[in-house]
Protein backbone atom coordinates (compact mmCIF):
# COMPACT_ATOMS: atom_id res chain seq x y z
CA UNK A 1 0.00 0.00 0.00
CA UNK A 2 2.83 2.40 0.97
CA UNK A 3 4.68 1.50 -2.24
CA UNK A 4 1.58 2.24 -4.30
CA UNK A 5 1.29 5.67 -2.61
CA UNK A 6 4.93 6.49 -3.28
CA UNK A 7 4.54 5.38 -6.91
CA UNK A 8 1.37 7.44 -7.22
CA UNK A 9 3.03 10.60 -5.82
CA UNK A 10 5.99 10.09 -8.13
CA UNK A 11 3.65 9.82 -11.09
CA UNK A 12 1.83 12.98 -10.03
CA UNK A 13 5.16 14.80 -9.66
CA UNK A 14 6.29 13.72 -13.15
CA UNK A 15 2.92 14.82 -14.51
CA UNK A 16 3.24 18.21 -12.77
CA UNK A 17 6.73 18.72 -14.25
CA UNK A 18 5.57 17.70 -17.70
CA UNK A 19 2.56 20.00 -17.49
CA UNK A 20 4.74 22.91 -16.36
CA UNK A 21 7.22 22.39 -19.19
CA UNK A 22 4.33 21.97 -21.62
CA UNK A 23 2.81 25.21 -20.34
CA UNK A 24 6.14 26.99 -20.89
CA UNK A 25 6.21 25.60 -24.42
CA UNK A 26 2.65 26.72 -25.07
CA UNK A 27 3.44 30.23 -23.78
CA UNK A 28 6.43 30.47 -26.12
CA UNK A 29 4.36 29.11 -29.01
CA UNK A 30 1.55 31.60 -28.42
CA UNK A 31 4.01 34.50 -28.27
CA UNK A 32 5.77 33.45 -31.44
CA UNK A 33 2.46 33.00 -33.26
CA UNK A 34 1.42 36.59 -32.62
CA UNK A 35 0.94 38.37 -35.95
CA UNK A 36 3.71 40.93 -36.49
CA UNK A 37 5.71 39.38 -33.69
CA UNK A 38 9.04 41.16 -33.80
CA UNK A 39 11.69 38.62 -33.01
CA UNK A 40 14.84 36.88 -34.09
CA UNK A 41 18.44 37.85 -34.35
CA UNK A 42 18.58 41.56 -33.63
CA UNK A 43 22.31 41.64 -34.20
CA UNK A 44 21.80 41.02 -37.90
CA UNK A 45 19.21 43.63 -38.60
CA UNK A 46 19.75 45.59 -41.76
CA UNK A 47 20.70 49.23 -41.93
CA UNK A 48 17.47 50.08 -43.64
CA UNK A 49 14.05 48.61 -43.55
CA UNK A 50 12.72 50.68 -46.36
CA UNK A 51 14.42 49.54 -49.50
CA UNK A 52 12.89 46.65 -51.36
CA UNK A 53 15.11 44.10 -53.04
CA UNK A 54 14.25 45.09 -56.58
CA UNK A 55 13.01 48.67 -56.57
CA UNK A 56 11.40 50.12 -59.65
CA UNK A 57 13.19 53.09 -61.19
CA UNK A 58 12.12 56.04 -59.01
CA UNK A 59 11.14 59.45 -60.28
CA UNK A 60 14.48 60.90 -59.29
CA UNK A 61 17.60 58.97 -60.20
CA UNK A 62 21.08 59.81 -61.35
CA UNK A 63 22.65 59.00 -64.67
CA UNK A 64 26.37 58.99 -65.29
CA UNK A 65 28.05 57.95 -68.54
CA UNK A 66 24.90 56.07 -69.53
CA UNK A 67 24.71 54.20 -66.21
CA UNK A 68 21.38 54.69 -64.45
CA UNK A 69 21.76 54.76 -60.67
CA UNK A 70 18.67 54.49 -58.51
CA UNK A 71 18.65 54.66 -54.73
CA UNK A 72 17.95 51.22 -53.27
CA UNK A 73 19.15 49.41 -56.41
CA UNK A 74 21.64 46.56 -56.20
CA UNK A 75 25.07 48.12 -56.26
CA UNK A 76 27.14 45.39 -57.93
CA UNK A 77 26.00 45.92 -61.55
CA UNK A 78 26.26 49.69 -61.07
CA UNK A 79 29.79 49.73 -59.64
CA UNK A 80 30.86 47.25 -62.31
CA UNK A 81 29.48 49.48 -65.07
CA UNK A 82 31.02 52.61 -63.54
CA UNK A 83 34.47 51.03 -63.46
CA UNK A 84 37.34 51.59 -61.03
CA UNK A 85 36.56 54.36 -58.53
CA UNK A 86 39.10 57.10 -57.80
CA UNK A 87 38.84 56.23 -54.09
CA UNK A 88 37.17 53.47 -52.18
CA UNK A 89 36.43 53.69 -48.46
CA UNK A 90 34.75 51.13 -46.29
CA UNK A 91 33.58 51.66 -42.77
CA UNK A 92 32.53 48.73 -40.69
CA UNK A 93 30.11 50.35 -38.31
CA UNK A 94 30.39 49.69 -34.58
CA UNK A 95 29.59 46.13 -33.59
CA UNK A 96 29.50 45.11 -37.24
CA UNK A 97 26.08 46.61 -37.69
CA UNK A 98 26.52 46.77 -41.43
CA UNK A 99 29.29 47.93 -43.69
CA UNK A 100 29.15 51.34 -45.33
CA UNK A 101 31.11 51.57 -48.54
CA UNK A 102 31.84 54.82 -50.31
CA UNK A 103 33.01 54.79 -53.93
CA UNK A 104 34.36 58.10 -55.18
CA UNK A 105 34.02 58.71 -58.92
CA UNK A 106 34.76 61.90 -60.87
CA UNK A 107 32.26 64.38 -59.46
CA UNK A 108 30.31 62.22 -57.03
CA UNK A 109 30.38 59.78 -54.10
CA UNK A 110 28.31 56.62 -54.24
CA UNK A 111 27.53 55.19 -50.80
CA UNK A 112 26.17 51.69 -50.34
CA UNK A 113 24.88 49.59 -47.48
CA UNK A 114 24.71 45.85 -46.99
CA UNK A 115 21.53 43.87 -46.52
CA UNK A 116 21.47 40.08 -46.42
CA UNK A 117 25.03 40.04 -47.77
CA UNK A 118 23.95 42.09 -50.79
CA UNK A 119 25.13 45.65 -51.41
CA UNK A 120 22.56 48.35 -52.25
CA UNK A 121 22.85 52.01 -53.19
CA UNK A 122 22.27 54.22 -50.16
CA UNK A 123 23.16 57.68 -51.47
CA UNK A 124 24.76 59.66 -54.26
CA UNK A 125 26.42 62.96 -53.29
CA UNK A 126 27.74 65.43 -55.83
CA UNK A 127 31.27 66.64 -55.16
CA UNK A 128 31.57 69.42 -57.75
CA UNK A 129 29.85 71.01 -60.73
CA UNK A 130 31.16 68.50 -63.30
CA UNK A 131 28.05 66.37 -62.87
CA UNK A 132 24.39 67.32 -63.16
CA UNK A 133 21.09 65.74 -62.25
CA UNK A 134 19.04 64.28 -65.11
CA UNK A 135 17.01 67.47 -64.98
CA UNK A 136 20.15 69.56 -65.50
CA UNK A 137 20.87 70.93 -62.02
CA UNK A 138 24.49 71.20 -60.84
CA UNK A 139 26.31 72.60 -57.83
CA UNK A 140 26.45 76.42 -57.97
CA UNK A 141 23.07 76.72 -59.76
CA UNK A 142 20.47 78.90 -58.07
CA UNK A 143 17.41 78.01 -56.02
CA UNK A 144 15.29 79.40 -58.86
CA UNK A 145 16.94 76.92 -61.25
CA UNK A 146 16.06 74.09 -58.87
CA UNK A 147 12.43 75.18 -58.55
CA UNK A 148 12.15 75.64 -62.29
CA UNK A 149 13.44 72.11 -62.87
CA UNK A 150 11.59 70.31 -60.07
CA UNK A 151 8.64 72.51 -59.19
CA UNK A 152 7.22 73.91 -55.97
CA UNK A 153 6.39 70.58 -54.38
CA UNK A 154 9.42 70.50 -52.09
CA UNK A 155 9.91 70.13 -48.37
CA UNK A 156 12.01 72.82 -46.79
CA UNK A 157 14.01 72.31 -43.62
CA UNK A 158 16.55 74.97 -42.74
CA UNK A 159 18.31 75.60 -46.04
CA UNK A 160 17.57 72.17 -47.47
CA UNK A 161 14.99 71.67 -50.23
CA UNK A 162 13.91 68.05 -50.73
CA UNK A 163 11.83 66.32 -53.37
CA UNK A 164 10.55 62.97 -52.17
CA UNK A 165 9.56 59.90 -54.13
CA UNK A 166 8.45 57.02 -51.89
CA UNK A 167 11.46 56.15 -49.76
CA UNK A 168 13.97 58.19 -51.69
CA UNK A 169 14.65 61.87 -51.78
CA UNK A 170 16.63 64.31 -53.80
CA UNK A 171 17.92 67.16 -51.64
CA UNK A 172 19.52 70.48 -52.45
CA UNK A 173 21.26 72.58 -49.83
CA UNK A 174 21.23 76.27 -50.68
CA UNK A 175 23.60 78.88 -49.33
CA UNK A 176 23.38 82.51 -50.54
CA UNK A 177 20.89 81.41 -53.20
CA UNK A 178 23.42 78.95 -54.59
CA UNK A 179 23.27 75.14 -54.58
CA UNK A 180 26.14 73.87 -52.44
CA UNK A 181 25.06 70.25 -52.07
CA UNK A 182 23.06 67.78 -54.13
CA UNK A 183 22.24 64.37 -52.76
CA UNK A 184 20.02 61.46 -53.71
CA UNK A 185 19.45 59.35 -50.61
CA UNK A 186 17.35 56.69 -49.00
CA UNK A 187 15.07 58.11 -46.33
CA UNK A 188 16.03 56.67 -42.98
CA UNK A 189 13.63 57.59 -40.18
Amino acid sequence: MANTDIKKSKNIMVLVILLAVLAAGIIIFIISSQPGSNSGNITRTEPSQQASNEPEMPEYYFEYNGVEIAIGAKAAPITEALGEPIHYFEAQSCAFEGMDRIYTYAGFDLQTYTKNDEEYVFSISFLDDTVTTREGIAISDSLDDVIEAYGQDYENSFNQYSYTDNNYKLSFIIEDNEVVSIEYALIVE
Binding site: H87, F89, D109, S157, S181
Partner: peptide, 12 residues
Protein backbone atom coordinates in the same frame (compact mmCIF):
# COMPACT_ATOMS: atom_id res chain seq x y z
CA UNK B 1 44.27 54.84 -42.97
CA UNK B 2 44.11 55.31 -46.71
CA UNK B 3 41.57 58.02 -47.39
CA UNK B 4 38.69 59.54 -45.47
CA UNK B 5 35.55 60.44 -47.44
CA UNK B 6 34.80 64.11 -47.81
CA UNK B 7 32.44 65.35 -45.13
CA UNK B 8 28.96 65.97 -46.46
CA UNK B 9 27.52 69.47 -46.19
CA UNK B 10 24.67 69.44 -43.66
CA UNK B 11 21.56 71.57 -43.82
CA UNK B 12 22.27 72.70 -40.27
Amino acid sequence: LDTVPRAKILPN
